[in-house]
Amino acid sequence: MKKIFSILFLSVGICAFSQQVESMETIFNDKISIRALELYDHKIWYSGTDSKFGFVDIQDPKNPKQIILSEDKLEFRTLAQDKAAFYAINIGSPAHFFTIDKKDLKSQVVFTDTTKTAFYDALHFVNEKLAYTFSDADKDHGLKLAIYRDGKWGMLKNAVTLHEGEAAFAASNTNISSTKNFVWIATGGKASRILRLNLKNEKFEVFNTPFIQGESSNGIYSIDFSDDHFGIAVGGDYTKQEANVNNIATTNNGGKTWQIQASGQNAGYTTCVKIKPGSKGKEIITVGDQHISYSSDFGKTWKKISDEKGFFVCQWIDKNHIVFAGKNRIAVMTLKG
């Protein structure tokens, strides 16, 4: 789902609470918009606008590496990896599925979706042999899901039908999440629902949510699950950045039912959520265009820990370091231990 974000330059405003910020360091600057990150080999890898793909070495950020995946100025909002390669898909039509070899960074297009409605919102690897990516629907409103299995891409047949005006947001490559048993997909727009795929039988279940919905800019933008039971969803309305009603929810039963959290008491529109590894969902970081926020009680309450602006996506490096990326830069936040 296409969106236009305002360009706001960066100012730091850090407030203290139970989780305090020690520092925020910019390690990469470029004329680029980044909405997808991966960590590999002590490096932060990214894909973005103008067909740009590359990495920044966490230990030696002064020597970044960047390549151009296509002579066409494609926009990438997806990025994923297995042991051998990275994978990225450009938004819009035709949608080219790129593979980038980790050894020599040579890229090739291995699959192309030429349908006019092609717009791939997220790409996610469940394990080394299995990945999913989904696109805005065609005229039949069927869930359009591509599957990577045993080295090949194809379309996954399913019986899920989306509502008129129900789609997804290519905001941070995080509206797909998985465990060994399930894959969850979040939608937004006229309806904001959770689609859960059982990996054992490849059958879908569809669950309604109390999330803000009804308009094309409403809904869930990002989800994350710590296990088969606990998950969190964040989002809102990108046209109303400060709106903070019914834009955060959690589940304790694998997505079947959702409980709204901190409605009217959070920092507003949010594009990415990541559960701290090892915390089992207790500690969570979120980022939106106007804020970085933190929860230390399973998403029930939130504190804004930074007024940094222009970030769209984040990822935990370790328990005390988080990488953020967005408009024109990549930065690393250090939390006090």
Rank of each mutant, 00 (worst) to 15 (best):
K2N: 05
I4D: 09
F5G: 03
L8H: 10
L10P: 08
S11C: 02
S11H: 02
V12F: 09
V12H: 07
V12M: 10
I14Y: 04
E25H: 04
S33R: 08
H42V: 05
H42E: 13
H42N: 15
S47W: 03
G48T: 06
S51D: 04
F53G: 12
D57V: 04
P61M: 05
P61Q: 09
K62F: 09
N63D: 12
K65P: 07
I68A: 00
D72A: 14
E75H: 13
T78S: 04
T78F: 02
A85R: 13
F86C: 07
D104T: 08
Q108M: 08
T112S: 13
D113F: 07
D121F: 00
K129P: 00
Y132I: 11
F134C: 12
F134P: 00
A137R: 12
L143T: 08
L145P: 04
I147L: 14
Y148W: 15
K152F: 12
K152G: 10
W153G: 12
M155R: 05
H163V: 01
H163W: 02
A167Q: 05
F169I: 14
F169L: 11
I176N: 09
S178E: 13
T179R: 08
F182M: 05
V183C: 11
I185K: 00
G188T: 04
L199H: 00
N201F: 04
K203R: 14
K203P: 01
N208E: 15
T209P: 01
P210L: 08
F211L: 06
I212F: 12
S217K: 08
I220T: 12
S222I: 03
F225K: 11
D227S: 13
D227R: 07
D228G: 11
I232T: 15
G235M: 11
G235A: 11
G236L: 14
G236D: 13
Y238W: 15
K240T: 03
V245E: 11
V245Y: 14
N246M: 06
I248Y: 08
K256D: 10
T257C: 08
A262Q: 12
Q265F: 06
C272E: 09
K274M: 12
G278D: 12
E283A: 01
T286R: 02
T286N: 02
V287N: 01
D289Y: 03
I292W: 07
S293I: 00
S293K: 02
W302E: 12
D307T: 10
V313T: 08
C314T: 13
D318H: 00
K319L: 05
H321G: 07
I322F: 06
G326Y: 08
K327N: 07
N328H: 10
L335I: 04
G337M: 10
